Structure formats: structure tokens, C-alpha cells
Simulated assay, not measured.
Amino acid sequence: MRIAEFDRDHVLRSAMTAFRAKGYAKTTMQELVAATGLHPGSLYAAFGNKRGLLLATVDHYVQEKGVERRHRLESASPLAGLHAYLNQLVDDALQGSCLVTRTLMELAEQDEEIYLRCKVIYGELEQDLAAQLQRAREQGELADDSDIPTLTAFLQVNIQGIITFAQCRPDRALLDGVINQLMASLGPR
């Protein structure tokens, strides 16, 4: 039996676009076949089923966004890095819904594996943000008595708010103002 060869990155990016646009339930296998350019048999052979393709797509999306996030956070100034990350987040949100947020909201209650996977994903974001805030405190950009766990949760709540709000109000100037207010609220530098 011949194994189908294809560009996995292309297939996952194409599936990601489809899932981001319509969500899991409303994206049909026919739409995924059209988006990816693969025959149904090739999709099933490579990913098992539509759910398997979603899981692979989420993993790919998270890996890609994690690399981007860590790249943005790298800066001599931790708060400048955080600001750069938030700007990238807005850019992404203005391109469409977040695949992880959409998947979490649509499927987490009915699929424990997806719920646990999303929990790990948000845990990794929490670790990156906490480390960034800790560095900011160590470098004097945040007050010595800054409560890093609370500030981290504050950032995560606001990040989710920005992602959701951008879908209803895709206004870059307004979202830039929100980011500036968020950065200012972190405390004295």
C-alpha cells in the first residue's frame, strides 16, 4: 500500500483556517478536503477522523503561537517584550478567532481530552507570562512587592477579553488603547 505524501504544515494551516472560520461542528469534511487539497482517504489515513485533524491542528497552532510569543517576549525590557506580545495578539485577533479559544468554548464541556489539552495550553501561557513578570520585577520595571500570580491571572483574563472583544469590535486603534491601558495598570516602572 502506497502512503500518501503531502505537506503536513500546509494541510494543518489550511485546516486551521477552516476551523477558525466556522468552528469544529460547522466545518464539514468536504470543506476540509477542499481546504487541504487532500482526498478524504488521505485525511482519514493521516489523522484518523475529523477530531484527529482538529487535535493535530490545535497542536500545530499552539506550537506556532508559542514560538511567536516567546520571540516577542524576548527583549532587554521585559515589559517592552510583553507589550510586543500583546500587539501581536491583537494582530492575530484581527485576522480571525483564536483556534484554542474557539475549540475550548465549543468542545471542552463534551470532550475531556480537549478540555485537558486546553488546560495545558493555558498553563504554558501562564508560565510564560509569570516568568516575564518575574523578570520585570527583578529588573525594576515592576514594584518589588508586585504579586506575580495575581498579575499573571490579570493578564490572562485581559488576553482572553481582547481575543473575544476583537471579534465584535475589530478596531485597531481602540484595541491599541486597551493594550496601553493594560500596560499602564501593571504598575510603576
Rank of each mutant, 00 (worst) to 15 (best):
Q30Y: 10
L32F: 10
V33A: 01
A35V: 06
T36S: 15
A45D: 13
R51Y: 11
R51L: 15
G52E: 04
G52S: 03
L54P: 08
A56P: 03
D59S: 12
D59N: 12
V62H: 07
Q63E: 15
Q63G: 12
K65F: 05
K65H: 13
G66N: 10
V67E: 14
R72V: 01
R72S: 07
R72N: 11
L73D: 04
S75I: 03
P78K: 11
G81M: 02
A93Q: 03
A93D: 03
A93I: 03
L94N: 14
Q95L: 15
G96S: 02
L99W: 04
L99R: 00
V100Y: 01
L104R: 14
L107K: 05
E109W: 05
D111F: 01
C118Y: 00
K119G: 08
I121Y: 00
E124Y: 01
L125E: 14
Q132K: 11
Q132V: 14
L133E: 04
Q134M: 13
R135E: 13
R135G: 14
E138W: 01
E141P: 03
A143D: 15
A143H: 09
A143V: 14
A143T: 14
D144L: 09
D147N: 15
I148N: 11
I148L: 15
P149K: 09
T152H: 07
F154R: 07
F154E: 03
V157T: 15
N158Q: 09
N158W: 04
I159T: 08
I159C: 07
Q160K: 10
